[in-house]
């Protein structure tokens, strides 16, 4: 990939007080691609997204977004720059209606016609939301709230969508539905996405490249096929079993990431 990436993260380190959550991470997101960040609990995935969008300030390192150094910019500025952040746990406005929530997404935009077009586009992808257009967001199911959160971020016409665990707390059926939509948004609308996920199986299905994070550091990266074919990834993240010994049990090799 010769063209310069849309989002370029270089050597960022982020602290929570004295605790170093991110210990030097570099990654690239190219335009029109879905890049996923995989890792277990507490690996630092969410912290990376928060650092990129400006909710947290890195102690070190640079973040370049469409050619501009946006390191340590406030979230409102990065949002104006074109970053749509779908936070972990949805965080929709509970007492606003579905429509009002979506309109909040377009808060910074002008041009009513275009906004209306986008609203239609969101409803096209999330027909469920259209049926509940005047319902308060708090009354939606978890899956619908997740759709609303994604829709709200789409309403700002982002150059990049930062998705933080869209599968959190959803039934397997809904998870595959959400990921289906994520895939279609990317392939049909060309939305660039940086996707944080614990559900590696789903995430790798839709993404082009991926980074595996452990204790604040990248331990493995590569394109989809490399990741899917790596025996360690298969064992630790995709749950494939090496069958040895008694009754199809298996023993983990110690993780090595070679």
């Amino acid at each position: 990939m010769s063209e310069s990436p849309l989002l370029q993260v270089r050597n960022i380190e982020t602290f929570y007080g004295p605790v170093m959550a991110i210990r030097g991470i570099s990654l690239d997101v190219h335009e029109g691609k879905i890049v996923s960040i995989l890792g277990g609990n507490g690996a630092g995935k969410t912290t990376i997204l928060k650092t990129i969008c400006g909710a947290l300030e890195p102690q070190k390192g640079t973040i370049v977004f469409s050619g501009q150094d946006i390191t340590a910019w406030q979230p409102d500025k990065t949002a104006k720059q074109g970053m749509g952040h779908v936070p972990e746990g949805r965080e929709v406005f509970p007492f606003l209606s579905v429509k009002e929530n979506l309109e909040m997404g377009a808060y910074n935009r002008k041009g009513k016609n275009e906004i209306d077009d986008d609203l239609e586009m969101v409803f096209h992808y999330f027909p469920d939301l259209k049926n509940k257009i005047n319902l308060q967001a708090v009354l939606l199911s978890g899956g619908q709230q997740q759709m609303l959160a994604i829709g709200r971020a789409l309403m700002m016409r982002p150059e990049i969508l930062l998705l933080d665990e869209p599968s959190l707390g959803l039934s397997p059926l809904l998870v595959s539905e959400i990921f289906d939509i994520i895939y279609r948004l990317n392939s049909e609308q060309g939305v660039t996405m940086l996707l944080v996920e614990q559900n590696a199986h789903m995430a790798l299905k839709v993404s082009h490249t991926g980074y595996v994070i452990e204790t604040g550091r990248v331990v493995f990266d590569g394109d989809r096929d490399t990741l899917l074919n790596n025996p360690d990834i298969q064992e630790f993240y995709l749950g494939k079993k090496q069958v040895i010994g008694r009754e199809k049990r298996r023993w983990k090799q110690r993780k090595t990431w070679r």
Partner: peptide
Amino acid sequence: VSQFAQENNVPFSDFKS
């Protein structure tokens, strides 16, 4: 060596890189 790379702003991802 990771720390060295961090200090000198050398971008890297995994051990191989």
